[in-house]
Design a protein around this nucleic acid. Structure first.
Length: 584
RNA sequence: GGAGCGGUAGCUCAGCUGGUUAGAGUGCCUGCCUGUCACGCAGGACGUCGCGGGUUCAAAUCCCGUCCGCUCCGCCA
């Protein structure tokens, strides 16, 4: 049917008779001569129809955008001055002998080559949106990424093993997507939030190295970088410690960036502790393309006669910190107000600042701080004339989130990125975080090994560190993993600390606890968020741009109109009764 | 659950201090055109102003509610 791809024709094809199949990207009718831009998955080529071919010409007159055609014709060189440098195939064109209309097309709802169609329309007609070159490129890149991953894992003796989608609900973590069981009335499967327990069991089964590129499901609210179903490269290995696992995953990441987008990531990724990341960058996923750091001011501000600062400085649960912004003195009053509003979404009640103008420091708070403290602030932050220093003073969590996010926002607004690519490992995460009521939650997941023995863990649970690690690239968490607990006593201790009773543990994880007792090897692993990775590699700002059929923010599909109601009969078979909340 | 922005022609948008017939570009249709490549020229058709209610002599415009899309907070072990 086809001898060549439109997008691949070049001068070497001159004088050849070719058969092309594809879509009409554009038609230009000059009355006497008609041009068709034919598009296929490799690109576009111009087809010329001359009126001498009467029948062919008549067909071409009736052709419209997005008709599917088979063209038979001869490749010729374009004449002097007719070459189109904007087109990869612009040096040649195809003179049509025959046109076969393989299918017609209604006028389409938006132009394939327009770039400003609203996302709502694009998602409704996703199959048309995906015809766009941009989308074709992104999904092609995604395929190259998964291909590289599979090749790398295979070369390193990892086995691709599938795990079930119909599985059991987990007691903590994200909300589960549930599937009613017909054969067990009143009972439900849960779709996996990740294959975590299965991949650990595979280690206990002696496969030693497992991987899978697999969908995970979490029924939580969506974001630009979060979909309810998303894809992970899931990896688990026995008999490797965290340094070995990180080194191997780093090698894969480096190779992937080189091979897929020709980017050289550093020969060794830097490592930062969670505590340092929070203190210096305010977030656990620092964007290391930005050199700005947060400077701690607790000690300096403890004695100042300014309660807004001295209060938090003297409170262990609070913090005073400063962010020096190079060249920031030009930020207008209006924009400072904008940033004040910006940090307020993280709970900050204000945004104090000092501008370093030519004629010295300027700020509404100078009179409270005094000259000595002001000078110290300038010294500690390394600020220079022309800079601005922003302050956060509040609960530590609020200060970190406010200044951490402000840092990234300022970098965007003032273009303060000094690298294009900045991977970093974040390590030494705490085991638990402490709730308001004093109860503990797993920071990673309940199967993560602590860096101390069970006995020590019990006495120092609130400060204990885990053997977890995250890979962050350009401020985006693209992967994370840990060494797992492989001894039943430790697992029981952790579950106990999390407030899970023996009975509940037995009910939910009995199979895991049993398996741990039959010769479980030390093991650990990692999972990469494929969608986020591809989002970063394609330079897009939403994972919807790298997913063929994504959901909207309300977790609906505009193409299929899922989710949808089902007939009563179907519900009865499943023993499911719908009861909607009353509306007033 | 909450905050903000948006919804007007197939598409992208203007109009929104209430006022007569709701516009532009593009697409579509018709005609003309033999070298265009975002072809050009001329003409034409196309509107549930998201939906429901209210205020008013009069609502795309003001008010209330609601639905949808996007960004964010909460949430996401």
């Amino acid at each position: 049917m086809r001898t060549d791809y439109c997008g691949e024709l070049n001068k070497d094809n001159i004088d050849q008779t070719v058969e092309l199949c594809g879509w009409v990207n554009r038609r230009r009718d000059h009355g006497g001569v008609i041009f068709l831009d034919m598009r296929d998955k490799r690109g576009i080529a111009q087809v010329v129809i001359n009126p001498e071919h009467k029948k062919t010409f008549e067909i071409a007159e009736g052709v419209r955008s997005e008709f599917v055609l088979k063209i038979t014709g001869k490749v010729i060189a374009r004449g002097e001055g007719l070459i189109n440098p904007k087109l990869a195939t612009g040096e040649i064109e195809v003179v049509a002998d025959e046109i076969e209309i393989l299918n017609t097309s209604k006028p389409i709802p938006f132009q394939i080559d327009s770039t400003d169609t609203s996302e709502e329309v694009r998602l409704k007609y996703r199959y048309l949106d995906l015809r766009r070159d941009e989308m074709q490129q992104r999904l092609r890149l995604r395929s190259k990424v998964t291909h590289f991953m599979r090749e790398f894992m295979d070369n390193n003796d990892f086995l691709d093993i599938e795990t079930p989608f119909l599985t059991k609900a987990t007691p903590e973590g994200a909300r589960d997507y549930l599937v009613p069981s017909r054969t067990h009335p009143g009972e439900f499967f849960a779709l996996p939030q990740s294959p975590q327990l299965f991949k650990q069991l595979l280690m206990m089964s002696g496969f030693e190295r497992y991987y899978q590129i697999v969908k995970c499901f979490r029924d939580e609210d969506l974001r630009a970088d979060r979909q309810p179903e998303f894809t992970q490269l899931d990896v688990e290995t026995s008999f490797m410690d965290e340094d070995e696992i990180m080194a191997m995953m780093e090698e894969m990441t480096r190779g992937m960036f080189k091979s897929v987008i020709d980017v050289d990531l550093p020969a060794e990724f830097p490592t930062i502790t969670y505590a340092d990341a929070m203190s210096l960058y305010g977030v656990d996923r620092p964007d290391m393309r930005i050199s700005m750091q947060i400077t701690d001011m607790d000690e300096l501000m403890q004695g100042v006669d300014f309660k807004v600062f001295s209060g938090p400085a003297n409170d262990v649960e609070s913090r005073v910190a400063a962010l020096r912004v190079p060249g920031g003195a030009t930020i207008s009053r209006k924009n400072i107000d904008k940033y004040t509003k910006y940090v307020s979404i993280y709970g900050a009640k204000g945004l104090a600042y000092i501008k370093l103008n030519e004629d010295g420091p300027a700020s509404p708070i100078l009179k409270f701080l005094g000259d000595d403290v002001t000078a110290k602030v300038i010294e500690m932050t390394g600020a220079q004339t022309g800079d601005i220093i922003f302050f956060g003073a509040d609960k530590t969590k609020i200060v970190n989130e406010a200044l951490g996010n402000l840092r990234e926002q300022l970098a965007k607004d003032l273009d303060l990125f000094d690298k294009q690519w900045a991977p970093i490992w974040v390590v030494d995460f705490p085991m638990f975080d402490v709730d308001g009521d004093g109860s503990l939650n797993a920071i990673h997941h309940p199967f993560t090994a602590p860096s101390v023995d069970a006995k020590t863990l019990e006495s120092t649970a609130d400060t204990a560190l885990s053997r977890a690690y995250d890979l962050v690239i350009n401020g985006s968490e693209v992967g994370g993993g840990s060494i797992r607990i492989h001894q039943v006593e430790m697992q029981q201790t952790v579950l106990k600390l999390l407030g899970i009773s023996d009975d509940e543990a037995k009910d939910k994880f009995g199979f895991l606890l049993d398996a741990l007792e039959y010769g479980c090897p030390p093991h650990g692993g990692m999972a990469f968020g494929l969608d986020r990775l591809v989002m970063i590699m394609t330079g897009t700002d939403s994972i919807r741009e790298v997913i063929a059929f994504p959901k909207t923010q309300t977790a609906a599909c505009l193409l299929t109109n899922a989710p949808a109601s089902v007939p009563r009969k179907v519900l009865r078979e499943l023993s499911v009764k719908v009861s909607l909340p009353e509306k007033d």
